[in-house]
Design a protein around this nucleic acid. Structure first.
Lengths: 194, 194
DNA sequence: GTCTATATAATGATAGAC
DNA sequence: GTCTATCATTATATAGAC
């Protein structure tokens, strides 16, 4: 693996573990073993390296979300994505960036995060519409809203899990969301006249 | 206002705005106007000051959550708390701490956050149980889980809103959660024999 | 591309006078 | 309690040789 790739790899890990502001060029050098000269040869600032690492972290995450787009039963896809194994105590590589003060105030660093979430939102909306169309979900629910609700359940689940240093609250949050979705099946239509 | 209180006040603001790791003693001095000597007279480390500021931020937040405990219609209390005005782009003073690398690795700083969330969870569980008892919510839903789901919706809503620099996703997330709760009313019992 | 040396500013304090 | 001075360490690079 060449130095450049090694730097991006290492910075990606550190940004997941410690965020951007509190990760120093020194951390990156020490973990990667790449020297000072090499580092600033490939990336002229810490921010440049962070941008590459962030794109990498997003690229890592988006394929999982496209599981929502796959064929087959919509509700089953929703369950599969929601319940997919996730290390709650590590948090979300991408979501974490929104809480980093130096990312928050830097539109260039925030932009890829916004794009990534927007993309996931599109997938959620699609599968939720399909669930409504398939009669698995009441048609008075708004898929756009619900998509944000379910994304928030995951992002917020990480927060709760880290606070308690326990995966439990994360698993509760998503199980509860799934239970609500299941409870929101359309009512069987009884005594309905043409 | 005396120096000590001014320091805690200022640190509380800064921890909400920038977290702990990326807030320096200098930030605190400059914003508060309190001198170096005073600062280290009252708090011997940055961490000590942060601890006091964190307790203050928690104390600010808990009264709102006790709105859930109040008397009256359970579902109305749920809606009121969920829909209460919140500046989504500022994020949660308490939840934010879970994403700060230096808080995360410091059990002493993390403990108050865990306690605060645990306390809010208790209030949520109680009101959800009441909603079930009042026939406003299906009795096959687990209040413990659902409490985590709803807390996560709020915490995650902040993440989405900050990512998009738009309050919209936060409002969507909570409105969607409320819609799901409403859709999870027990079915009217038809043809049920004694 | 990589290495070592150097540089400026900020961080997180401590010391001691008033 | 507050002030000013000082300090060791780290952050974030630059410079220039190899």
């Amino acid at each position: 693996m060449d130095s450049r790739e090694l730097l991006v790899d290492t910075m990606s890990e550190l940004m997941w573990e410690r965020g951007y502001a509190d990760t120093s060029p020194r951390h990156v050098r020490e973990r990667s073993g790449v020297g000072q000269g090499s580092m600033y040869h490939h990336f002229s600032t810490k921010r440049d390296l962070a941008l590459a690492a962030l794109e990498r972290n997003i690229a890592d995450l988006l394929p999982a979300a496209s599981e929502l787009d796959g064929p087959g039963d919509p509700m089953a896809r929703i369950e599969a994505y929601l319940m997919r194994p996730r290390a709650a105590l590590k948090g979300c590589k991408v979501g974490r960036m929104t809480q980093d003060p130096q990312v928050r105030e830097d539109p260039v660093l925030l932009a890829p995060v916004a794009r990534a979430f927007a993309e996931v939102h599109v997938s959620w909306v699609r599968v939720l519409r399909e669930a409504v169309a398939a009669g698995q979900l009441r048609d008075d629910l708004d898929p756009e809203q619900l998509a944000h609700t379910l994304m928030a359940v995951l992002q917020g689940g990480y927060v709760l899990a880290i606070a308690q240093q326990d995966q439990g609250p994360f698993d509760d949050a998503r199980a509860g969301a799934l239970a609500l979705l299941r409870a929101a099946k359309p009512n069987p239509k009884i005594n309905r006249r043409k």
